[in-house]
């Protein structure tokens, strides 16, 4: 049976991103957008209409786009550099490293349509390596919001934060996750959001995978397994305490991300736990380049479904020391 990865009734987080940026730009004239002919794909038509001169379109030129972002920051602006994440993170990686991360310029990088959102377009247009690349740059805060509310919070936090930020967005529809396990809503970069308490296994999920992880927890509960679930929205800095506490208290871990597991959250958790608290770990995500296919098909193929996550959790539980 096919499990739809995309909710029929869900939200495209690009809308939350654009609405938040427009609202911030109205309050703070330092905010500018920098794009590579990506006004439409970044959903910035409204921004362009309201703040025409503050939308800097450098054309199809990603290296220039990121360098211009650093220069705008030098000139006192707060640039949000927005482009399809496959081009932003890969084509301009040296500019991100030298001009933004190492120079510590106050640039916000916004990767649109990340993961395999451009499913059928193939691996050139998939952006599954970006977490590994960006997480390696230690001055960059790397955020992966999971729903419209987290997206708004991430954009607002980035605008107020002094320093480089990468926000990874998707065009795939996701549900509103609602409140944290304790009934409140807290989005603090560097602190994972506890969405569900649990004692037998912990699922650490990011972005489009969080709502699927919550469904997996429902499946596991039916089988008597109590799963803790985090919206692990920050890759850098890593919430080490949440991971190590989960390792100690639940004894089994599963990471879920719409990304390459090598170097991504799967890699980060493996690095941390193997050095501090060796724990059975199953990693849901991509193992390498993906073929062409619809998003649903690619998710199903890679077991990035509630059923697939639940299976992985059972395997992790069975491997407990």
């Amino acid at each position: 049976m096919m499990t739809a990865a995309i909710e029929e009734e869900g939200f495209d987080c690009r809308k939350a991103w654009a609405a938040t940026l427009e609202s911030l730009a109205a309050e703070d004239e330092r905010i500018v957008a920098v794009v590579n002919d990506s006004v439409g794909s970044s959903n910035l038509g409204g921004f362009q209409k309201d703040f025409a001169d503050r939308l800097v379109n450098v054309g199809i030129a990603e290296q220039n786009m990121v360098g211009v972002g650093a220069g705008l920051a030098n000139g006192g602006r707060i640039p949000f550099v927005s482009a399809a994440s496959c081009f932003l993170s890969a084509r301009a990686l040296e500019q991100i490293k030298a001009d933004v991360a190492y120079s510590e310029y106050n640039v916000k990088l916004v990767g649109q349509s990340s993961g395999v959102a451009y499913g059928e377009l193939g691996a050139t247009h998939h952006s599954i390596e970006d977490f590994a690349w960006l997480r390696a740059l230690d001055t960059v805060t790397v955020l992966a919001p999971a729903d419209p509310w987290e997206t708004e919070m991430a954009v607002r936090w980035a605008a107020a934060h002094q320093g480089p930020v990468y926000i990874r967005l998707s065009r795939m529809k996701v549900p509103d996750l609602g409140s944290d396990a304790d009934g409140r809503r807290d989005f603090t970069p560097g602190k994972a959001r506890l969405m569900r308490t649990g004692a037998d296994v912990t699922i650490l999920a990011s972005g489009t995978m969080v709502h699927l992880a919550l469904k997996a927890a429902d499946i596991l509960a039916q089988g008597g397994i109590s799963a803790r679930v985090y919206s692990f929205h920050t890759y850098n800095p890593l919430d080490e305490m949440a991971i190590l506490d989960a390792a100690t208290e639940t004894g089994a871990l599963v990471t879920c991300e719409e990304a390459l597991v090598r170097g991504g959250l799967g890699g980060a958790v493996a690095e941390l736990t193997s050095a501090n608290q060796p724990t059975p770990l199953e990693r849901i995500g991509f193992q390498g380049f993906q073929t062409t296919g619809s998003v649903d098909w690619l998710f199903e193929e890679n077991r990035m479904t509630p059923g697939g996550i639940a299976e992985a959790a059972r395997r992790a539980v069975a491997r407990k020391l």
């Binding site: 800097v56 290296q63 220039n64 990121v66 360098g67 211009v68 972002g69 650093a70 220069g71 705008l72 920051a73 030098n74 000139g75 006192g76 602006r77 640039p79 040296e94 500019q95 030298a98 001009d99 190492y102 120079s103």
Partner: peptide
């Protein structure tokens, strides 16, 4: 700017000029 890899300074200067 933290230059060294070549071809970086000009786009940065362009951004400064646009600002």
């Amino acid at each position: 700017a933290n230059t060294g890899p070549l071809g970086h300074g000009f786009p940065i200067a362009l951004g400064v000029a646009i600002a």
